[in-house]
Design a protein around this nucleic acid. Sequence first.
DNA 1: GCGGCTATTGTGGATATCCGCAGAGTCGGC
DNA 2: GCCGACTCTGCGGATATCCACAATAGCCGC
Lengths: 198, 198
Amino acid sequence: MTTLHIVDDDEAIRDALGWLFQSRNVPVVGWPSAEAFLESWRPDTAGCLLLDIRMEGMSGLELFDRLLAKGCRMPVIFLTGHGDVPIAVGALKKGARDFVEKPFNDNELVDRVIDALAVDAEQREREAGQAGLAARLSTLTQRERQVMELVVAGRLNKVIADELGISMRTVEVHRSHVFEKMRVKTAVELTRLLSGAS
Amino acid sequence: MTTLHIVDDDEAIRDALGWLFQSRNVPVVGWPSAEAFLESWRPDTAGCLLLDIRMEGMSGLELFDRLLAKGCRMPVIFLTGHGDVPIAVGALKKGARDFVEKPFNDNELVDRVIDALAVDAEQREREAGQAGLAARLSTLTQRERQVMELVVAGRLNKVIADELGISMRTVEVHRSHVFEKMRVKTAVELTRLLSGAS
DNA sequence: GCGGCTATTGTGGATATCCGCAGAGTCGGC
DNA sequence: GCCGACTCTGCGGATATCCACAATAGCCGC
């Protein structure tokens, strides 16, 4: 299980939440400010975020915006004492996973955090696959990429040769290079790979 | 442009909203109660929903739940006078498109409704394509379906023949029937069709 | 300039796919 | 019982794909 990051400027709350989650075997890291978390955040930081809205300095909402701008896709659960509908609606529409008002129900919050952690893990797994795919794609030459696109579009080699103004033999060579570099054996597998199907 | 359905038990509000949207060329139908809309709703009812929460009889939230249970995927925008964070969060997490508190900004609401209508139109277009696909899939026999699955899994005919314990020639026959019924010419096209790629 | 990468093409052959022709067995409905 | 479907199979040939061997040519970096 990955880590829950708690961002709250109230040490008492961080401690209380820390106790709660550690008693449920959820690894926790606490952060005393949005700035502290933002500075330490890296694209490979895993887990989920439990974010207080009203804090000294940067608010939880602003931290969320900045993380989104940096490409962070971690699930975020907002925790707030002063409920406000437009704020909650805005946060959820921007992609926050949840918005919980204090006082909250311990069990419910734990469940939501565990869900969020699972979502993050799954997401990271998918992205890892995509990264490997992108790496393999980047080894293709321009010509190979062109041929690949036409192959995946369902064109026959002779048609591809025609469209690119080259001989069938050359298409075959590029095609086999593409298969080799993408580590597939057939056009169908390649198509599935690029369509994101398993 | 498809229709905006306004469900509100206050006739004055329905009229006011009706005026607002008609002046922006958005076709509107008003409903005096959740029950009235629910009864008239059909799976092919298009457009989007503007839903008051507090109403005589069935609430907007309950109407939303019942529509979801019936498979309605229309975009829903809630409109309410008495904001309540847990309610808003719950509605959005169930898939409501927006949650707006009165008093609202006219232009903003119109924009959101127009967005929602566009989303619905796009969604219906996608679903129409899926329906045609499903219709073609339903004309396949069991065997043809089996063969198709193995084909899109990237297996060669000889492997398919092996796995199904039949001859290659039979696989070829089923395969060509599948191609004919699905109206494609190559395995790659078929794969793209089933992967939802364009 | 030499070596490496890319792109190109050819020959020839092994496999795979596509398809028409032909036939056979099962099963369910009229 | 006959007809229509679905399923199964074989033969042979037209295409398509896969691949090893072989070669030419441009570009770039050392």
